[in-house]
């Protein structure tokens, strides 16, 4: 059957547009979401259909417009607010984690905050330390918000619709390298079939992207695709890796991860976010706490605990990729513990 194939950016936009047609309370605001269409194409074409009242360009004050989004959500709207780069959260974190994330609790449940905070993450294109971070674990660490991160166009649309309909605040993160942008490198696997009709992808369910019996590789967003590349390499060496896509960090499908590791007995977690105190630690802990018997020590492949370098060779050296994930899996298969574990400051394999 022939497919209706779309980039992740177009799938997100289609999800937003379909909800906006159904519900007049949904609107979008942020920097360059209007005529520009979002710098990572997340609102491309919406202004033409919905006009400037519902697709609102804002001044460069994240504190003001994210705070305004929280107020609008509490007053009955369903705003989608774009924080252009997740790296910019520093100036507006009070609005995010003290207002957006907590107002439902503080009001004893009388005020809902049905808001989507949409934001771009990730590096690998020489944009340096203030425009290349992932930071999903920072948001997932703080209670009160859902944190979701699609890896395919199909999920991008379904999770966007799910996020808009959710009565809780949802941080919807997307990796720039998965968007299918004409001006930057792309990952082919992110462009998938997208049904034309409206649908949702539920939060808190992992997706097994590749089945395997020897080692489980857990990832999120771009790292799912890097893990699939690693799995292809490993298959040529006789190692069958199972690739698990977390899809959402909050809620987190710990049971889905556990089931896979119970089958394989080995675990590698791949993450483009920083290594220490991060997603990799949370996943490994969840498995260990559940009493799953591991054949060999689990390993993490994550971003070293350093500011992201601008210069491409240095950035490439630091970024987790398919080869680093494959190497971690080989070491796990050999039963090796991480060198210097317990005293280490960085990451790698």
């Amino acid at each position: 059957m022939s497919q209706r194939r779309m980039t992740m950016a177009k799938a997100m936009v289609e999800g937003i547009a379909q909800e906006m047609r159904e519900d007049p309370n949904v609107f979008v605001m942020g920097e360059d979401v209007g005529p520009y269409g979002g710098i990572f194409d997340s609102t491309q074409g919406l202004l033409d259909e919905f006009g400037p009242e519902r697709i609102r360009d804002t001044p460069i004050s994240e504190t003001a417009f994210i705070g305004a989004g929280v107020g609008a959500a509490m007053a009955g709207s369903r705003p989608i607010v774009e924080l252009m780069f997740v790296d910019f959260f520093g100036v507006c974190m009070d609005a995010i984690y003290n207002l957006m994330a907590k107002n439902t609790y503080f009001s004893g449940g009388r005020s809902k905050v049905p808001m989507v905070l949409m934001t771009a993450t990730g590096g690998g294109y020489g944009d340096a330390g203030q425009h290349s971070q992932c930071l999903h674990a920072t948001f997932a660490h703080l209670p009160g918000m859902k944190v979701v991160h699609p890896s395919t166009a199909y999920d991008a649309k379904g999770m966007m619709i799910q996020a808009i309909r959710d009565d809780n605040p949802v941080v919807y993160m997307f990796h720039k390298g998965l968007q299918g942008l004409g001006w930057m490198w792309n990952v082919k696997g992110a462009t998938t079939h997208v049904p034309e009709e409206s649908y949702t992808v539920p939060f808190g369910e992992v997706a097994v992207r590749r089945e395997g019996s020897d080692v489980t590789i857990v990832g999120l967003g771009l790292m799912v695709h890097r893990a699939l590349e690693a799995a292809e390499t490993l298959a040529q060496e006789g190692i069958e890796a199972e690739v698990v896509d977390l899809r959402t960090l909050v809620p987190l499908d710990r049971e889905g991860v556990r089931k896979s590791v119970e089958k394989t007995g080995r675990l590698v977690v791949a993450d483009e976010d920083y290594s220490s105190y991060g997603m990799t630690a949370e996943i490994i802990t969840s498995v260990v706490e559940a009493g799953v018997s591991l054949t060999s020590p689990p390993r993490r492949v994550a971003y070293p605990d350093i500011p992201i370098p601008f210069t491409p060779p240095m950035e490439k050296f630091a970024l987790p990729d398919g080869e680093k994930i494959a190497e971690a899996a080989r070491k796990t298969m050999a039963g090796a513990a991480t060198e210097g574990a317990g005293a280490r400051a960085g990451a790698g394999t």
């Binding site: 497919q3 194939r5 779309m6 980039t7 299918g180 004409g182 001006w183 792309n186 462009t191």
Partner: peptide, 8 residues
């Protein structure tokens, strides 16, 4: 210009 992607 240039071809930026093939979807198939």
């Amino acid at each position: 210009g240039a071809v930026s992607s093939w979807l198939f």
